[in-house]
Design a protein around this nucleic acid. Sequence first.
DNA 1: TCAATTAAGTTACAATTGTAACCATTGATT
DNA 2: AATCAATGGTTACAATTGTAACTTAATTGA
Lengths: 153, 153
Amino acid sequence: MSHTTDTLVLEEFLPFRLNRLSESISLKFAQHYKREYGMTRPEWRALAALGQHGELTSTQIGKFSTMHKTKVSRAVQALSKRGWLHRQRDDNDRRVEYVKLTPNGRKNYVKIVELAHAFEEELTASMDESAKATVQSALKLLEELEQPTAPSK
Amino acid sequence: MSHTTDTLVLEEFLPFRLNRLSESISLKFAQHYKREYGMTRPEWRALAALGQHGELTSTQIGKFSTMHKTKVSRAVQALSKRGWLHRQRDDNDRRVEYVKLTPNGRKNYVKIVELAHAFEEELTASMDESAKATVQSALKLLEELEQPTAPSK
DNA sequence: TCAATTAAGTTACAATTGTAACCATTGATT
DNA sequence: AATCAATGGTTACAATTGTAACTTAATTGA
């Protein structure tokens, strides 16, 4: 029927390309916060979610950072041990625990965020505005594939 | 100096977006070959490299599929055990081993490639041609960030 | 009110991965 | 030729992750 080839060119295959890009970029960024703070990726993500949204439950951290609850649990423990988080049980629903950054936690968050902004800027420094726009559009398009917009009304 | 914000919006951060996209898409595709062939991601990648390029050494498989040599080693072992690969020592350099698909290996490779093509088409079915072109350009731009083109001459 | 479900979060265990050490072999240096 | 360094590939061990079971608490509904 159609152009069914019996081979696949890996470098043209979308999942592979995305995976390769993501790995190499994430890894490069991870080196920064790993070297300077000994932080792991799940920890960075939990930190980022808390820094952006303020007080959150672990479940919410998982939602915002798309991590499984066990990863969240371990990341929260690790960040707590550093003294970067404050944890507080909900008195109405004692299963729930609210987590937020301590002053020290936020101080470090801010520093890492600076790192992040600098990293992103340096990474994309060689692209002109139109190239950047293309990347933004593409990301948006791809993200929409994931969650096909709910029919409005 | 510039627009240094003291928070980061995770959903706008390039490494995060790429990672999230890549994970969700790769995972979705992995379900196919995992369910139907019990194959892991490293195995699929090694298979893809061999299917595309023919006979390869493990080192070359690693190059083409961007995997570490231990991953390659284990993947090759697993595929061998299935009878999908044929391995042959180089007589000139007896450290090296050439790996290629057996007829049965190729038969299965072709089937999985069909899966892959179908998956990619279905995934991008909702995009029109111009959207697809945008995605292609963006991927190319991002990939160029990684390996800044060697100065010609 | 008191089982039976369900939810939030942790923990135990198995599978996967990464790092480093390791063989075996080849190539380079003397 | 004899040593030394480098290369292809595997293996051992440690760290990371994922899955499932578990704990505690809340909710449902008979």
